[in-house]
Design a protein around this nucleic acid. Structure first.
Lengths: 263, 263
DNA sequence: TCGTTTTGTTCCATTATTTGGAACAGTGTT
DNA sequence: AACACTGTTCCAAATAATGGAACAAAACGA
């Protein structure tokens, strides 16, 4: 997971700080870091001077810098499906009165990039950016199932297979079998595999060439809805997924017409 | 703006890609880059392998990677004022039925980290992460005004002073004078300096030691509200700003108690 | 079809940066 | 006043980045 010379090392440190989730002191980082004191020190300096980290002289702590927020806004706008999918999610959520998730794969994990909530109208940024496991969520399995073989094997190998509930798939073998079934069926269920009482149906968002762009899901609690009822929503979901994929396709082409922009 | 060896250069490239706002080809980047071909190529490789960029083989284009979205979620959660301020903004917005902004300074620019809209309930991530000019917005001037002298001079020097409207301050001198007035008064107005017909009052969020954490503002259109009416809201705003500052203060201390975590 | 141009990728000796052990400097503690 | 602890600086050795140029692979044109 590391590598790429200096840049990779700097990012390792950045992730380490991120993992703390709160401002952190030099000594604390040092004690957990593989880097020698002077090296870690200089990396922190570099990151701070680049505003990827922020150093609070009062408390002598490092925390993530807001430059990341700005960069991520660009990333979210241009590279995630969210802006394209937004109107479609709005429509789906309004029509069905359900909780809808939009996710993409990041490093064999599920990254949620947007969400519509049935009860509370909308959740903020806090929802976009969250990560979750791929092997025990509807969106995760839907995406894994449609990955090319090699990529799927690699992704499956990276799962942690922690048993969240009694329904969680806890071996690569069991998961691979489930993925094949999903691929055949065209959509994925989450049968309380991640949280007890929470079920969902998820569909991948695929290009014409069947490349996986992301996935959408509809979630409910077992008290409110049954798997069968969720399944009945799949046509609507499929329609939405197809519409998003079509829009995404269009969004990619403009660049090709603009490629002769060089000076 | 550059520097810091390899990491700095890599970030330059990252920003360059971000600036495009759409997927971009190697040749396009090369034509605008100061780096020689091979160097740029390797930097792109590194960034891509680190998932800060994403390479689409089909269209041969680079775009920002979603790893940034994940990192930014952490940054937003832990390092921005947004999570602390959220309940306070909710209350303020609900009570006054107005549009409220929460902003921080990033590199002498205004970075909006949260927003409450009077009409539409909430806007998503798209609002958090947006940047704007500091010299002609309420929140921007409120923050600049309370910066230590040296930092203020440096920040003022970095403003672009583009004339957006006839009320925009367009020289460092005029702005500095305005900032002194704001400091004396305790809050800032935006008198249609950025957009015609848009006015606002803004207050800085300060620590006890008067360090600038951020700013909040209440915005309105000249048709809907007058400056005097906005001014009447300042006590409520001041109360909210103080409450946020107090919460932020508490949020910083926990780390000090946990500093002996080393192995 | 075959040369030609454009675009992207690899090589490798040179050059510049990073490395990290160790010495040093602050700060607070007993 | 000695001690322990955390953070910062130094510098020769080790390592990684550099970029000119050669190479490969498409896209283009006649």
């Amino acid at each position: 997971m590391t590598g790429d010379g200096t840049v990779g090392k700097a990012l390792d440190v950045l992730e380490q700080v991120a993992a703390f989730g709160r401002p952190v002191r030099f000594a604390t980082l040092l004690s957990q870091s593989a880097f020698p004191k002077a090296t870690l020190y200089r990396l922190l300096q570099t990151l701070t001077s680049q505003n990827l980290l922020e150093y609070d002289a009062e408390t002598q702590t490092y925390s993530l810098g807001i430059r990341l927020v700005r960069l991520a806004h660009n990333a979210w706008t241009q590279s995630s499906l969210a802006p394209i999918a937004r109107p479609h999610l709005d429509r789906l959520s309004a029509e069905l009165k359900v909780t809808v998730h939009l996710a993409q794969l990041d490093n064999a994990q599920v990254l949620y990039v947007d969400k519509r909530n049935a009860a509370e109208p909308i959740e903020m940024f806090s929802a976009a950016g969250k990560v979750g496991p791929a092997y025990c969520t509807g969106v995760g399995k839907a995406m894994l199932a449609f990955l090319p073989d090699a990529a799927q094997r690699s992704a499956v190998a990276q799962q942690s297979f922690h048993r969240f509930t009694e329904h969680t798939y806890t071996t690569a073998q069991a998961l691979t079998k489930e993925l094949a079934a999903i691929r055949a069926r065209g959509y994925a269920f989450d049968r309380e595999e991640h949280e007890p009482g929470i079920i969902c149906v998820a569909l991948p968002i695929l290009t014409q060439n069947t490349r996986v762009l992301g996935a959408i899901s509809v979630t409910g609690s077992t008290q409110a809805i049954s798997l069968d009822q969720l399944q009945e929503l799949t046509p609507k979901l499929a329609q939405t997924a197809a519409a998003i994929a079509a829009d995404a396709q269009e969004w990619r082409f403009p660049d090709i017409n603009l490629q002769h922009t060089g000076t």
